[in-house]
């Protein structure tokens, strides 16, 4: 085998390209100079010393780096820092307020929804995003479809072979803003599936979120 580098390109050594910008994180403004290649995860951890968000895979496959951008949960490992200079970022360090724990943080402790704790910051930010999405009426794959009359279709269907049959009295889809989705255990499990936990704390995580959602 010839000498191979592990890449598909080769060029003269180009210098890194850096950009000066301001990041709004947890209600604070941080002026930073970042390499365009830098992800939000690496900037938070490496430049702002906000090490709560964790790097579990660096490919968007585990959710340990989940943070909120403009209130929505995203994976910070696939978010370029230069792309969020006009956004508002919240990390696990900013979830609570005035030194008090966020209700989700409290519930995670009460339900022992963590073991090693490494995925926990991502789980918490994701859970905060789930609460907001459900409140806004966002469906998940296990949310029942609208019943007859609400649209041209009536077919409710379960995508999950082992899911219980849908409630025949499923919620109608109103013309106004969608009703909030009630977060039962099945809803929480589906919505939280982007956050892996190898310790297997899922039952506690689901119980904790269900408690806060009530």
């Amino acid at each position: 085998m010839k000498g191979d580098a592990n890449t598909t390109y080769d060029d003269a050594a180009p210098a890194p390209i850096t950009v000066d910008l301001q990041l709004s994180v947890n209600d604070q403004l941080y002026p930073v100079t970042v390499d365009t290649r830098e992800t939000l995860l690496d900037t938070l951890r490496g430049r702002l010393d906000l090490t709560g968000a964790k790097k579990g895979c660096d490919h968007g496959q585990c959710g340990a780096c989940t943070v909120l951008v403009d209130g929505r949960r995203v994976v910070s490992c696939l978010t370029l820092t230069v792309s969020v200079d006009d956004r508002t970022i919240t990390t696990v360090e900013g979830l609570g307020s005035g030194g008090a724990l966020h209700p989700l943080q409290k519930a995670f402790i009460d339900h022992d929804a963590l073991q090693c704790g490494f995925c926990t910051p991502g789980q918490l930010c994701s859970a905060a995003g789930v609460l907001a999405e459900a409140a806004a009426g966002w469906p998940s794959l296990v949310t029942p479809r609208s019943p007859p009359g609400a649209g041209p279709e009536a077919a409710g269907c379960s995508h999950d072979p082992a899911a219980p049959p849908h409630d025949p009295a499923a919620r109608a889809l109103p013309d106004g803003p969608p009703e909030p989705v009630r977060l039962g255990e099945e809803e929480i499990r589906e919505r939280m599936s982007g956050n892996l936990c190898r310790c297997g704390a899922y039952p506690g995580i689901v119980a904790a979120i269900a408690e806060v959602a009530r």
């Binding site: 968007g60 995203v74 994976v75 995003g129 789930v130 469906p139 609208s146 649209g151 995508h159 889809l173």
Partner: peptide, 25 residues
């Protein structure tokens, strides 16, 4: 996937989108 017009008129599309990836992605 959350858009009322999509959910009402094209529930299959909403389902396909919701079947993909994770909430964050």
């Amino acid at each position: 996937a959350a858009h009322p017009l999509v959910r009402r008129g094209y529930p299959m599309l909403a389902e396909a989108v919701l079947a993909g990836a994770s909430g964050q992605l």
